[in-house]
Every structure is written in C-alpha cells, then in structure tokens.
C-alpha cells in the first residue's frame, strides 16, 4: 500500500539473525532488511540467503517489509533482487540520482512480479543522498511505484563536502528540497537516521524538527528509537480536537448535500481536510481512541 503510515522505518542488518528474528516485535511501521551498508563485502552472499529465509519464516507482524538492495551499479544488485518474494512490500534504493536509476529498478520489478506471480505492486523508496539526487528529486518522486522519498544525510554530507553538525544546518536545503519535491509529486518524505543510539533527547529534537518541516517519518537504526519517533509523530490533544471538528464539518456538509464545507463560519479547503484525516490516522496509530477522547 503506497500511502500507508511510515512514521518509523527500522533498519535490520541483513546478516544479524538475532535482530532479524525479533524484527516484528518492535512495532516499526516499516522494517528494512538491509543488504547494503550493514553487510560487509565478504558476507553479502550469506546475508542474502539469511534474508531470504527470514522472509519465509519470520513474522514481521504489521510492519511493512522493505529490502534495501545494493546499488544497481554493484555486482550484488541482481542477486539481491532475487530475494524478492510475495512477502516483500518494497525496495529501498540507495543513492538514487536520476529518474533512469529508478526506472531501471522498476523494469526489473516488472519482470520479477510476472515471473513470481506477485499480484501487487512492489513499491520503491529511493534514497536521496547526493547533490545530484536532491536536484533531481522531483523527477524521481513522480515515477510510478515510488511511494516516498527518503533522505540519507551521511552520504549527502560527504557528497557536498559539508561538515556534519548536531544542529544539521548543512542539511537544511536538502531536507526542504526533498520534502517539497515529494509533496509536489504527492508522495511521502522520510527523514534520515539519527546516528547516536544512546542520545534519546537528540533523537527527539531532530525528529521534532523533521516533523515540523513536513517529513512523514524518520528512519531508525536501533529498535529503542521507535518509541520516541512514534511519540513525536503522535498529534497533540489540541490537534486531534481540531481534526475531529473538521471531520464533523465534512459530515454535516455531506448530510446537507452542500458542496461547501465550513467550520466556525470559515470555508475549509482540501489541504485542511487532508491534514485532518492524517491527524486522525496518526492518533489512531498511536492507540488513541479518537471517538472517546478522555477529558483533560
């Protein structure tokens, strides 16, 4: 499903059985079985086989199952794509720089879907992690199969010759550009990982920034980061109340068969409606019963 919630995407190193076996336990919106950076060159083959068996046997529960393959330019790409089965929801494509990069992967997916009889569309989440990728982000985001653009800050910083700082000022333009491109193309924008596993406060701050910038989710390199990320993406009570009021106004307009939706005497346009729907979805994902909001 292209527009499912992706507040959190948890990376699971592809050659680590201890983490893979619990992949479904941490309630990440998506899990990424990683064949790329988390796997050393010598272990690419056994990681691929381990991921293949994990896809057969491990229950990833409600998490969307994504595979991060090695770049199409590497010798590993073709074999990596071989692990795709009907248990896979999507591909995370590293270092996406042009629409050709994504189109090539899409045509491989066309073949695999036919060959393996997979009756649904496997999505692609291109990772933008270079200057060129940022500039081409909109063209990439518009392609079929693309469900979201992800940002990869580590490689991007290296590519532009910037220094990685805790405040992330050097990433400001790329983040904004990716959110803008993604939203213009009608797909999600997903922020980079927060690399300091033990710095909960730093993770919270960075996730809050990402959310305020318009990102729909953040990637996690450790399961303990999931709770904080979800917490940040949980709407406040005020936001939920406002969204509920909008939904009520829609309902009333429908009942009156009125084409115009109004709330407190002001007209509501489509983006506001969409936003309200999303707030309700996020609240429900966080386990909040929006029909019975508790009193303060």
């Amino acid at each position: 499903m292209k527009d499912r919630l992706r507040r959190s995407r948890l990376f699971l190193p592809g050659n680590n059985p201890k983490i893979l076996q619990d992949g479904g336990v941490f309630e990440a919106d998506s899990v990424i079985l990683d064949l790329e950076d988390a796997v050393s060159i010598d272990s690419k083959d056994e990681a691929r086989i381990l991921v293949k068996w994990a896809l057969r046997d491990v229950d990833f529960r409600n998490s969307e199952v994504l595979i991060r393959v090695n770049s199409p330019e590497t010798e590993f790409f073709e074999a990596d794509m071989g692990v795709i089965s009907d248990r896979v929801d999507g591909i995370v494509l590293p270092k996406a720089e042009s629409k050709e990069d994504v189109k090539n992967v899409a045509s491989v997916l066309d073949e695999i879907e036919t060959e393996k009889g997979i009756g649904r569309e496997i999505i692609i989440i291109p990772t933008i992690e270079s200057a060129l990728g940022v500039l081409n982000a909109y063209d990439i985001a518009r392609l079929p199969r693309v469900a979201a653009l992800a940002f990869g800050a580590e490689d991007f910083t290296k590519d532009i010759g910037a220094e990685r700082t805790p405040e992330g000022t050097e990433l400001w333009y790329a983040r904004s550009a990716i959110v803008t491109a993604a939203k213009a193309a009608g797909v999600q924008a997903l922020d980079t990982v927060y690399p300091s596993v033990h710095d909960d406060e730093g993770l919270r701050r960075e996730t809050e920034t990402a959310r305020r910038m318009g990102f729909d989710g953040k990637s996690a390199i450790h399961p303990n980061q999931i709770g904080i990320i979800h917490d940040v993406f949980t709407p406040s009570r005020e936001e939920i109340k406002k969204a509920l009021a909008v939904m009520q106004a829609i309902k009333e307009a429908e009942e009156k068969k009125s084409g115009v939706i109004a709330l407190n005497g002001r007209m509501i346009d489509r983006p506001v409606v969409e936003r309200a729907k999303k707030v309700i979805r996020l609240a429900e994902a966080a386990g909040i019963d929006t029909e019975h909001l508790p009193e303060e």
């Binding site: 059985p17 893979l20 076996q21 083959d45 056994e46 086989i49 381990l50 293949k52 068996w53 994990a54 057969r56 046997d57 491990v58």
Partner: peptide, 17 residues
C-alpha cells in the same frame, strides 16, 4: 541458539560456498 530459519540459511550459504 539459532532459530530454524537461521540454521537453514547458514546451511544453504555454506553449501553454496
């Protein structure tokens, strides 16, 4: 303490190698 999926994967990987 490998689970079955892991042991089978390691057997397959060793065989292929």
């Amino acid at each position: 303490g490998a689970l079955p999926f892991c042991m089978k994967a390691r057997v397959e990987a060793a065989l292929r190698r």
